[in-house]
Design a protein around this nucleic acid. Sequence first.
RNA 1: GAGCCAUUAGCUCAGCUGGUAGAGCACCUGACUUUUAAUCAGGGUGUCCGGGGUUCGAGUCCCCGAUGGCUCACCA
Length: 512
Amino acid sequence: MDRPGAENIAGQACSFTNEDENETFYLRGLKLAQIREKGINPYGERFERTSLAEEIKENYEIIQGQRVAVAGRLMAKRGHGKATFADLQDLSGRIQIYLRSNEIGEEAYALFGKVDLGDILGVEGSVFKTRLGEVTIAVQRFVILSKCLRTLPEKWHGLKDIELRYRQRYLDLIVNPDVKKTFIIRSKIIQAVRRFLENRGFLEVETPMMHPIPGGAAARPFITHHNTLDIDLYLRIAPELYLKRLLVGGFEKVYEINRNFRNEGISTKHNPEFTMLELYQAYADYVDMMNLTEELLHNVAVEVLGSAKIDCEGQEIDLSPSWKIIPMSEAVKEYTGLDFNEINSDGEAVRAAEEIGLEAEKPGTWGTVLNQVFEERVEPKLIQPTFIIDYPVDISPLAKRKENEPRLTSRFELFIMGREIANAFSELNDPIDQRMRFEEQAKKRLAGDDLSHMMDEDYLRALEYGMPPAGGLGIGIDRLVMILTGLSSIRDIILFPILKPKEQGSHENKDL
RNA sequence: GAGCCAUUAGCUCAGCUGGUAGAGCACCUGACUUUUAAUCAGGGUGUCCGGGGUUCGAGUCCCCGAUGGCUCACCA
């Protein structure tokens, strides 16, 4: 590149990749240098604000004529010779600013000519309304707080390219106001959950994210390595077993909101790292958890959205209590006609599934087949909030058995919009039963099922000291946010969803 | 992992049966002191995702690859 000064923008030695060699970047670099030549630092210091854009607009009657100071990003500029209108955007929204040469002086007005769309400015001036009624700040003084060297996405269409929106989320946030709103709602949902639990006496705790033995869920883990100890560790797939150790230790109501990591497929409903709420309450059971779940979600919806009725992908979801409760076998009977209560062997169960056109999974026990039929034929149809209870013991290695029905556990999952939102059970606190379940799981593992639970002696030892009976609940925060915001892709409610890195290198070495 | 679709200027997009690459916004030059998708007069700033191939000639056709989206599989 043989443009003068391009490799030495603003007097600073720096290198740019080919990608950056567009005209705009070069020209803005020159403006940056010109601003510096005037003795002005285009990357300014702290700026004392008096107001946010929306506050000024909302309180115009009171604030009219007063001097205000606002800061934000320049989003539009309309020059009229010796006067210029522009729009400044801060967290709250946008406000118009107005600069006149004879008001701020010719030198300052000329400097404003070096200001580009995307620059971050601080302005001071008095509030007035234009002829057309727009609340505007008549600028008396402005400072450049940060120079923008690149072109912002288009003002009218915004940033639509989905890949760019995820890879450069900051642009998405600058240019698409709804995106900002979504993530504010996400934050409010989590705050509301914490407040709700705090009010009920739950203690927030943090348990390890790196586990010597991954447990508490059926999922493939990520493996990492600790150098000094020279051991492999697993990023946690669930915090469950650690939280229950805390019940043994005497904490009676605990919860954790944090990331889980599962090394599995990526889709609009699955991100490899996702946020989970898990809570445990001593001396309670899964029915208590059902009530808690219902109250929690209803409460959060009303608090954050102002209503228990939410619009989700064109469907109205009503989170007002009380939600339907259906045993899994009854739900299956209702939607397929198969009555698993009348089925008494694994072989029979497999044949029954095949009769309705399902290919039963390999080993295929009564419980796994029941669950499979449920997932394939019932789950997608559960649109309004529905508790499915009485899960088979085969797929619930950490849940307490029902006393009068040993094939089943005291467990429920909550479904909304055909998606699993919550999972809860009466926690298995019998160390002998837990040991047998782990052994059962270990057998499956040996047979090649790498999703089965690993034997965890340390956890068993904790149970052997005695864990109070307890109810435990897990809620997928991302999926909850999806329901409450009505968005159908998990990537739209995670700020930086996982994406494959773009290929590098092709342009990196070209300059050398 | 499989199928389908997409990838063209900073952004949003057009580009037919193969014939020297276009628009709007943004940007650059000039005019303009209440505009608001400001306006007016000029100016295209490009590795058409990458690599091969067919052809006199490829953004366009064929093959391979990259990334993304959707569907499916996986994920109880």
